[in-house]
Design a protein around this nucleic acid. Structure first.
Lengths: 332, 332
DNA sequence: ATGAAAGCGCTAACAT
DNA sequence: ATGTTAGCGCTTTCAT
């Protein structure tokens, strides 16, 4: 049962060990300036008392926070993966992470406000929806690193995937298999859509397939993909590169319901390598983003800014890679 | 560009407004004891200076933390939904949430330790793996609410779904459709597996179908479901209730590859209503847990314990419900 | 209604 | 190597 007593403080440990609080502080921080014997004794007492340093007091006093605030969205499989990488990277750099989620009923502004009150040293925002101006205002107060989207502002660092290149990889893969009539279902108004569309166009031109360029309005949801598929049915191409995995599954579903064989009649490529795309059911060929590299870079950028590096705007664009699964093959 | 200046403090606002810090504190906390005129002026200055209270200092001084620590796992779709509900509930009760994730490379103990240093008032653990003894030790230090699994210890509150009832609902649904030969693919060593298995047995007995009881060893992954499906192929039942949605998709995949029609030849029920189970592709009938109710209760429990209520161990078991989609139908 | 002063748990100068 | 002192930004008595 829980004892009603307050948790032990530095002073408690100091009293018990018969030394000053300052000395205990030194030991707990593993700072130089304590004899091995003292160190051992203090550590022993701390463990016995089950002492836990109060990070809030620590941060308050030391001024510097070594705390990185991360805003992410639930229901975004890609964000989960990014979080995993960010924890690893932060740990390596000696920083802590504090998370704030965006949910269907908790908007981005609320999520950010919470982190601001926690006095994070910097913010890492995963695919923020806020307009550039708002992000810039934020960056006025503390270092801000944006991931997975572009932001053209000198105070905001960006780490994202080369989305244009991603679609080019998809087209290259399909062309290699022998496809020529390759369509693209785009992401409508989503931030990354323009880049991916451009990548598609460039790749088609590069392969001398300009006459086969065909862009279908899509979106980011399953329904968007399904709608696009219906637009495609009259005159199906032999391959489609879709804006993302979710839209691709919607498209796949409609194609199969109309007895089109995938990849026999038509090949399909998604984007993101979402967790479900590896399910045996779906087995979707897709464009993957290099999550670990992105996470490591984002933390480095944040840490450098915190350390006061007078850097100008940096945008780091990471190369994506193909993950070839079962929805692509040679045309009949 | 970011000005190198530190963020404004209460003292800055006080100086600018020409009042004492104590008064500004009163205004910021919306506490009684300030004239309307002063209140307005201080608020105006605070907004102009873009003042943000420092939650660390606030908590440090006031002693009480109104901060709930939540440990969740990435890659667990169900947890995302739970987080959404928890934020809503905490908000309503005037509490803040601080999140700590378990990732493939960051274990539960680390996740919990982080929250302990943040001086949370209580902990809410989503499906913790720690043994009861460890959770009990933790509950010795601060209120602990465990979700989605059972813990028999008087200091630990539990909020979970009635998993036995869940499987009973699944069997009831199948019996109602006319099925008699209903098999169950279980969850091997997973915590909830025993309850679900028992629910299956009870329901079969209740319907006088004891002779058809057939339990196939399964697990929680897609592969486990696929393996179970292969065991079923020699002598397929007309319906299967599977431990969870992921295993169910694995099973579905194998069945379809062997030209069994779902639900024509065989009906399939999953568990959890995971996000992907609603995909048109999968369209899985499943047992859903009542997320909002669970979240609300978990926060209430935590808050009551924080408020010092001398409650004994409470386990709240929530009723699940069926979500009927396309993988179940009458037997041929 | 307002202000002065103490102190939450800790770290960082500066002593010794 | 160890102790003393002074705050970090805030809330909370207790004055006025």
């Amino acid at each position: 049962m829980r004892t009603g007593e307050r948790r032990p403080t530095l002073a408690d440990v100091a009293a018990e060990a018969g030394v000053s609080v300052a000395l205990v502080s030194i030991v707990m921080r593993e700072a130089p300036g304590a004899s091995a014997a003292t160190r051992q004794r203090v550590l022993e007492v701390a463990r016995r008392l089950d002492y836990q340093p109060d990070s809030r007091a620590r941060l308050l006093r030391s001024g510097e926070s070594r705390l990185l605030g991360v805003v992410f969205s639930v229901r975004h499989p890609f964000h989960d993966d990014l979080l995993t990488g960010l924890y690893d990277a932060a740990d390596k750099q000696g920083y802590e992470l504090t998370l704030s989620a965006v949910t269907p009923r908790r908007d981005e502004r609320t999520a950010i406000a919470g982190l601001l009150q926690d006095r994070c040293a910097a913010l890492i925002l995963l695919g923020p929806l806020a307009p550039t101006a708002e992000l810039a205002t934020l960056a006025d107060r503390l270092p801000v690193v944006v991931m997975t989207r572009a932001v053209r502002h000198r105070a905001v660092d960006v780490v994202r995937t080369d989305d244009s290149r991603g679609l080019q990889l998809a087209v290259d893969h399909l062309v290699e298999l022998g496809h020529r009539r390759i369509a693209h279902v785009d992401g409508a108004r989503w931030v990354a859509s323009a880049d991916r569309r451009q990548g598609y166009r460039d790749a088609m031109r590069r392969h001398g397939l300009e006459e086969f360029v065909r862009i279908i309005p899509g979106g980011s949801g399953e329904e968007d993909g399904a709608r696009a598929a219906r637009l495609l049915l009259d005159d199906p191409p032999t391959a489609v590169a879709v804006f993302n995995d979710l839209a691709a599954t919607g498209l796949l579903d409609v194609l199969r319901r109309h007895n089109l064989d995938v990849p026999g009649d038509i090949s399909v490529v998604g984007y993101d390598d979402s967790s479900f795309s590896a399910l045996a059911h779906i087995d979707l060929t897709t464009v993957a983003q290099d999550i670990d590299t992105m996470a490591t870079l984002a933390v480095s950028r944040a840490v450098e800014r915190v350390a006061g590096a007078q850097v100008v705007h940096r945008e780091t664009v990471i190369a994506p890679r193909m993950v070839i699964r079962g929805t692509t093959g040679p045309p009949r």
